[in-house]
Each structure stands twice: as C-alpha cells, then as structure tokens.
C-alpha cells in the first residue's frame, strides 16, 4: 500500500515537471482507463466522421473539390488508425475497441450524428468541425501520455488543410449566386450550435475536468476552448458575410472576448444518449462495414498463411 502511494507521488511529480508517460511505465489504473476511453473514443470519432462527408464525395461539384474531399476523408481514416494504435499500447485490442463502438458502449463525437443535407454542409464541416477539432487537438499535442501526444502532432500537421478546404468551399458559395449564399447560411445555421457543443459540457457540469487537468490530459477547460473557438471564428464568418445564428453574440470589451447565448444542453444530452438525427444510421453503417468485411479479413489472413507454407515448401525443395 505504501509502495502504491509512493509510486503515485513519483508519477504525479513526473507529470508536474512536464515529463511524459510511456506505455510500459507504471501508471495509476485510472490513468490507464481514462486514456483507453478517451483515445479510443477519439479514434471512433475520426472513423465515424468519414460517414457524413463520404456522403458527398460522388456529388462534389468539381474535380478540384472532389480530390480535396477525398484526400480529407482519407486523412480521417489515417487519424483513426494512429489513435487506435496509440490506445493499443495501453493493453486493449483493436477488436475490443470495435466491439465497444458497435455495441454502443463507447461514444464518438456527437457532431457526426447530424446529417449532411447540402454541399454547403461539407464546407461548414471543414471550417467549423475541423476548426473546433484543431483547437482541441493542438492542446492535446502537449498531453502527458507519449503515444497520444505523438499521434496528435501527426494529426495536427494534417488538419490545417481540412479546415482550409472547407473555408474555400464556403468562400465560393458566399461569393456565389444568392441561392448559393443562402445554402451557405443554412449550413452555418444548422452546424453552429452543434459545433459549440463539440467542446463538451460546461465546466461546472464536467466532473472529469479536474483530474484531466491534474494529469495534463487537458490543459484547458471545455469553456476556455469553446471561448477560444468562438473568438477565432466570428471574424471568419464576418469575412464570408454570413450571420452566426446567435442574437446574443457580441464583443465584450471588458472581457476581451465574445459573449454568446445559451447552448441547448437538452439537445446535447439527447444526441449523446443516442437519440440524435443520425445515431442509428451511423452505427449501422459501421456495424455493416465490419460484418460485411469479415470474409475479406479472413481471406487475407488465409492468403498470407498459404504464402508462408509455399515459401517453406520451396525452401525444402531447394535444400
């Protein structure tokens, strides 16, 4: 018991000093579990996040838009893979994580439970959703768990293109015909509030924040990150000539930040609990892909095993 306390103290000292924790190092069980949960859910978000955008790849309005979107969605698959392998260093298997996703035990970001109804949604997602993700992920590049921090560095290098391709789509629409501009405004109207919800509940409703900050998983609270996002994004919306759908949004000189209206937390919890517009559809798409791909995974394994046998036989004949 005394040993345990001493180990915990040393562990905390290392984190306080800005040191990193690597997979084989001693760590409190709660630290391990929290990371498995957070990293795997982050991975699931990258993978499920391909679905709403994948919806528009075949209908992109030009080749330029199509190659950009295709490359972005491929990046998101890569992000999922970096993160799954980071989580696996903590002793959970890939299949276990998939199982948790498919049975609804593990969550993914709620933003992907909203539908992509028009092409402008693709622009808005790149601009706002990747924009919000960048703010969160830049913070996470300095997180205390080594493999997670390294995956984040890699991811952040790739994210900036995602946001820029999104904003370029919005620019095109905002400077286009009145119908195109209306389409852009409509997408902003639908995605603004869900994007703010991406940062999670208010600090006072977020019981895990304190521990996350102590362990340097998070270095800023949900509300701080959300404010940072709003302050950065408002001028970008103004540049597009679009209106953010919040009548209470206004610059507060005293605070040096934008004030904003109340988020609909009932909606947030409804979607988190599985009753958003697309929860069922998204999960079904994942489960179907997994089950319908089972024969491919088996066949690939069988093929590799056969190659080994063949090689061994050849070696025997030669000797």
């Amino acid at each position: 018991m005394g040993d345990q306390i001493q180990l915990e103290e040393l562990f905390q000292q290392r984190i306080d000093a800005g040191g990193k924790i690597e997979p084989k190092d001693w760590m409190p069980e709660k630290y391990r579990k929290t990371h498995i949960r957070q990293i795997s859910q982050h991975a699931h978000s990258e993978i499920v996040g391909m679905l709403p955008e994948g919806n528009w790849i075949t209908r992109a309005p030009s080749l330029r838009r199509k190659v950009g979107l295709l490359a972005k969605v491929q990046d998101e698959a890569g992000h999922g893979l970096y993160l799954y392998s980071a989580a696996e260093t903590l002793g959970i298997s890939r299949d276990e994580m998939f199982d948790q996703l498919h049975t609804g035990k593990a969550k993914y970001s709620s933003i992907f439970n909203y539908p992509t109804l028009s092409w402008a949604d693709i622009g808005t997602i790149g601009w706002l959703v990747d924009g919000a993700a960048i703010i969160n992920q830049v913070m996470l590049t300095r997180t205390s768990f080594g493999p997670y921090a390294r995956a984040m560095v890699r991811i952040c290098k790739e994210e900036s293109f995602h946001q820029r391709q999104g904003y370029e789509i919005m620019l095109g629409l905002a400077q286009g015909t009145p119908e195109q501009k209306a389409m852009a405004q409509d997408a902003l109207n639908r995605f603004w509030w869900p994007s703010l919800m991406m940062f999670g509940p208010r600090d006072e409703d977020s019981p895990n924040t304190e521990l996350s900050v102590k362990w340097k998983i998070k270095r800023k609270t949900n509300d701080e990150l959300r404010q940072q996002f709003i302050d950065i994004t408002v001028p970008q919306a103004e540049y597009l000539g679009l209106t953010i759908p919040d009548p209470d949004l206004k610059w507060n000189d005293e605070r040096g930040h934008y004030d904003f209206g109340e988020i609909d937390w009932d909606e947030f919890w409804t979607v988190v609990k599985g009753n958003g517009p697309c929860n069922t559809e998204r999960l079904k798409a994942r489960v179907d892909a997994w089950e319908e791909g089972a024969w491919v995974r088996e066949a690939a394994l069988a093929y590799s095993e056969k190659q080994v046998i063949k090689k061994n036989q050849k070696a025997k004949l030669a000797s």
Partner: peptide, 10 residues
C-alpha cells in the same frame, strides 16, 4: 465480438 482472428501488429 467477431470470431475472426485479429491481424498481427507491425
């Protein structure tokens, strides 16, 4: 959980 064996890690 799937019955297929997980592919090895590299």
């Amino acid at each position: 959980m799937s019955t297929t064996q997980e592919w090895p890690l590299y």
